[in-house]
Lab assay of single mutants.
Amino acid sequence: VTVHVDGVEYDFDNPEEALKFAKKVAEDKNGTYEVHGNQIRVT
């Protein structure tokens, strides 16, 4: 699973970890996250 944040890609073997990371980053920057299959984009 790849999490995209501001043009940087973070790869996770564990989808739950990826989702947790995306949620935290989105909260920290008052943004949102979208899941597209095995890609998660934080905006």
Rank of each mutant, 00 (worst) to 15 (best):
V1H: 09
V1E: 01
V1W: 15
V1R: 05
T2E: 03
T2I: 11
T2D: 01
V3N: 01
V3E: 00
H4T: 13
H4D: 07
H4K: 08
V5L: 08
V5I: 11
V5W: 08
D6Y: 06
D6N: 14
G7V: 02
V8W: 10
V8N: 09
E9P: 10
E9K: 14
Y10C: 10
Y10I: 07
D11T: 15
D11R: 15
D11K: 15
D11G: 13
F12A: 00
F12P: 00
D13A: 13
D13Y: 07
D13K: 11
D13N: 10
D13Q: 11
N14V: 06
N14M: 06
N14L: 07
N14C: 10
P15L: 15
P15V: 15
P15E: 14
E16W: 08
E16N: 07
E17G: 04
E17N: 07
E17M: 06
A18I: 00
L19N: 03
K20S: 11
F21E: 03
F21Y: 07
F21A: 03
A22Y: 00
A22M: 02
A22L: 04
K23N: 06
K23Y: 04
K23E: 13
K23S: 09
K23W: 04
K24P: 00
K24F: 06
A26V: 06
A26N: 02
A26P: 00
A26M: 05
A26K: 03
E27Q: 12
E27L: 13
E27Y: 11
D28C: 13
D28Q: 14
K29G: 11
K29D: 07
N30P: 02
N30V: 04
G31M: 12
T32P: 02
T32Q: 12
T32H: 13
T32Y: 14
T32S: 14
T32W: 14
Y33F: 13
Y33N: 02
Y33Q: 02
E34N: 05
E34L: 07
V35P: 03
V35Y: 07
V35R: 08
V35L: 07
H36W: 09
G37I: 05
G37F: 05
G37S: 05
N38L: 06
N38C: 11
N38E: 04
Q39Y: 11
Q39W: 08
Q39D: 10
I40D: 01
I40A: 00
R41T: 14
R41M: 14
R41D: 08
R41C: 14
V42E: 01
V42T: 03
V42H: 01
T43D: 08
T43A: 09
